[in-house]
Every structure is written in structure tokens, then in C-alpha cells.
């Protein structure tokens, strides 16, 4: 993956400032997120850690506007998320547990379809670019059904990156990737970060994700248990804390 660095981002690619105020999410009696207060400035690379069921996925899905909080507020650049125009989604990119890909279509057809939904100019060219960036060009004509989990994940990353969003939200993005592909993923994330974008990713492997991070969050049963700047310097401390939480 060639490093992508364009200091002058187009307006849709600028990173919004993110603000959570006493945000909670319930599923029936289950408290998934519990009165979170959090601010993320443009250009941060935040790693969200925590044991299973701590609320990482729910948090990322709420930030991606896929889910509504039960209580509290989510603000992007001081605008309540509920009142944002649809065009705002142009600035968000999200990779979840599922790939959001159509099995019966080829890699290229999937990406072209999403490029049309994002109303991208020069869609064909852009699809060609991300195919190269994610190193999946040789499989462009293969149906998604025939790909391995790791390759599907790379197509999912390509899908989220098509419109070059300013805020990237990734839920355990290294799932299914082999070690070289993981290394390339983190190179790409570092490049996104260098270009001034905000990146928020969840991870269960601090050794892999923290060296890049500018900030680490630890979620425990929906609460923000830890919020530390400069995680690379505190790797040991964070790992010990995560062990305790597990």
C-alpha cells in the first residue's frame, strides 16, 4: 500500500471534531454503554480496548451513525448527530464485523456500486485506485463469495476508503488478515493519520495497535475505565490493565 499523504484535504475528507456527552446505550436491561463523556480532536489516532462485551462495537456503530444512543448526546463539530444532513456521511468510513459486501457480485462490481451510492466522480478510476491501495487488484474480477476471509476484509477496507473519508471507524480491522496484510493495514492507517485524518479503531491486541496510537481508551462494562495519551510509551501499563479487566 503506497502511503497516502495529501495535506490539503477536500472538504468532505476533513475530520469532524467528535464529542460524546453522557452517552448511554441500552439493549433492554443490558447496559452496553454507560454515560460516556469523550472528546476526540481531528487528527487523533484512538485505539479502543476492552474485553468482549465491553461496548467497543456499540460505541463504533453509534459513531458511524448506524445506531442511535438511548440517552445522552453525540456531537460532530458541535452539531447534534441527529440533525446532520445525509451528506455528512460522506465524511465517515466504517468497517465492521461483517463485510457489507454482496457475495454474488465481483470485487469490482461491489466497489463500483458503493462508489455510485457515494456519488463519486470518476468512480471507475477511484475503484482502480483502492484496488491497488488494498492490494486486491488481481482478484478484482472474482466474485466476493470465492474470496478468503482475509481478502474479503481487504475489500471491506477498500469499500470504507472509496470516498476518502476524514473520519475512519474500524471495528477490529485486522480480523482474518495474515501477518503481512496486518502490517500493511497498519502502514495504511499510519498514512491516513499522517494526512490529518481521525482514525478510531477497536482492537483486542494492544501490542499490534498501540505503537501507532496517539490515545488509548479502555472500556469496561460500558464505562470508560482508562483514557491515556501517548500509549506507545505506556504499553506495559496498558497491557497489565487490560489483563486485569479480562
Amino acid at each position: 500500500m503506497p502511503p497516502h499523504a495529501s495535506p490539503d484535504l477536500p472538504p468532505e475528507a476533513t475530520s469532524p471534531r467528535l464529542h460524546l456527552r453522557q452517552l448511554s446505550k441500552y439493549f433492554g436491561r443490558f447496559v452496553a454503554l454507560d454515560r460516556l463523556d469523550l472528546e476526540v480532536q481531528p487528527g487523533e489516532l484512538v485505539v479502543v480496548l476492552g474485553p468482549n462485551g465491553a461496548g467497543k462495537t456499540t460505541l463504533l456503530r453509534i459513531l458511524a451513525l448506524l445506531q442511535q444512543p438511548s440517552e445522552g448526546e453525540l456531537l460532530f463539530d458541535d452539531q447534534p448527530a441527529r440533525r446532520l444532513p445525509p451528506a455528512f456521511r460522506q465524511r465517515l468510513g466504517f468497517v465492521g464485523h461483517e463485510t457489507f459486501l454482496y457475495d454474488e457480485l465481483t470485487v469490482e462490481e461491489n466497489l463500483r456500486f458503493y462508489a455510485r451510492l457515494y456519488a463519486l466522480d470518476a468512480a471507475a478510476q477511484r475503484v482502480g485506485e483502492v484496488l491497488g491501495e488494498m492490494d486486491i487488484a488481481p482478484r478484482a474480477r472474482s466474485p466476493v463469495r470465492s474470496l478468503s476471509r482475509g481478502l474479503k476484509q481487504r475489500v471491506a477496507l477498500a469499500r470504507a476508503w472509496l470516498h476518502r473519508p476524514g473520519l475512519l471507524l474500524l471495528d477490529e480491522p485486522s480480523t482474518g488478515l495474515d501477518p503481512p496484510a496486518r502490517a500493511r493495514l497498519f502502514d495504511w492507517l499510519a498514512a491516513c493519520h499522517r494526512s490529518g485524518r481521525t482514525v478510531i479503531l477497536s482492537s483486542h491486541d494492544p501490542a499490534e495497535s498501540l505503537p501507532l496510537a496517539t490515545r488509548a481508551l479502555l472500556l469496561e462494562r460500558g464505562r470508560l475505565a482508562l483514557d491515556l495519551p501517548d500509549p506507545p510509551a505506556r504499553l506495559k501499563e496498558i497491557e497489565a490493565r487490560l489483563q486485569a479487566a479480562n
Binding site: Y26, G28, R29, F30, V31, D34
Partner: peptide
């Protein structure tokens, strides 16, 4: 009841 159960869970 749900509200109270949530509070207990917290």
C-alpha cells in the same frame, strides 16, 4: 422495572 434493573447492572 427495566430502568431499575439497569441501575442494578451498573
Amino acid at each position: 422495572l427495566t430502568r431499575l434493573a439497569r441501575r442494578t447492572a451498573r
